[in-house]
């Protein structure tokens, strides 16, 4: 992905978001090129999810601009928002599967409700996407509550890719899974993103996952992207915050808010 002249797929400039007195994002600048897989690392509660939700228009940033394919989408609503949304697929942190619908209708949701596709046809595509994430057609009629955590993640992934989006967001895709299942999900993410030729933005705290699925990595700390660079440069970033995070040390410049009694 060479040309610096090419319009970035996603571009954030000076994005700020506060909840009451609490500044969560404090001027985030980020640029993700078309077809790139960008991973954002950072401790819990640093605003990683808030950043994704701001790009998706689920939260309204207080300042800054967000561009998708060069189009300013910061404050668009209604039909214009719906049209931009068709470019996106998202795998939520907790899966966010609709528990009132069977698995196949979850996967086909964007096709049936969003695109108005006929149910029979949408079902066929859903079965196909389930197969792509390694689930047989026997789970299609189950309720999401009947599935294990790993299977729910896969269904969430199938739902995110069902509408063949140009951009996919993954919010902590491996959190809460055992290491083997986490690696299975990593492989699926790499495969799905490659098959779709999509641009991917992933947030995670799992360094093994970050290394495996990313082209570039950035670190979010105190509301800013304090470092970013190619994946293989992360071990000699020369940034003490990044070093502390990737080695998981309690001592360092990042102070955890732990009150000692």
């Amino acid at each position: 992905m060479s040309a610096a002249t090419e319009t970035p797929k996603i571009e954030l400039t000076g994005v700020k978001k506060a909840f009451g007195p609490k500044k969560v994002l404090d001027g985030v600048d980020l640029s993700v090129a078309k077809g790139e897989s960008f991973v954002i690392i950072g401790g819990s509660g640093t605003g990683k999810s808030v950043m994704l939700k701001s790009i998706l228009g689920l939260l309204n940033p207080d300042a800054g601009t967000i561009k998708v394919d060069g189009e300013d989408t910061t404050h668009i609503t209604g039909r214009a928002r719906d049209r931009v949304m068709t470019k996106f697929g998202m795998l939520f942190q907790g899966g966010a599967l609709f528990d009132s619908l069977p698995v196949w209708q979850n996967v086909a949701f964007g096709l049936i409700q969003g695109r108005g596709m006929r149910r029979a046809q949408a079902r066929d595509i859903a079965i196909e996407k389930l197969a792509a994430v390694g689930l047989g057609s026997d789970v299609a009629n189950l309720s999401p509550a009947e599935l294990s955590g790993g299977m729910q993640k896969r269904v969430g992934l199938a739902r995110a890719i069902a509408t063949t989006p140009e951009i996919i967001f993954f919010d902590e895709p491996t959190t809460g899974l055992d290491p083997i299942m986490a690696d299975v999900i990593n492989d699926l993410i790499v495969k799905c993103v490659r098959d779709l030729g999509a641009t991917a933005l992933t947030i995670t705290q799992d360094m093994a996952s970050a290394r495996k699925i990313s082209d570039r990595i950035g670190m979010l700390y105190q509301g800013k992207l304090i470092w970013q660079g190619p994946t293989d440069s992360i071990d000699d970033s020369g940034n003490p915050y990044v070093d502390q995070f990737i080695h998981g040390r309690a001592e360092g410049p990042i102070q955890m808010q732990v009150k000692l009694g």
Partner: peptide, 21 residues
């Protein structure tokens, strides 16, 4: 209870990302 659970489990957000208001 139903919509509240959908809200806190991000299902309401998921609706929006699937082009459904």
């Amino acid at each position: 209870a139903e919509i509240g659970t959908m809200r806190v489990t991000e299902q309401v957000d998921a609706l929006s990302t699937l082009s459904t208001n």
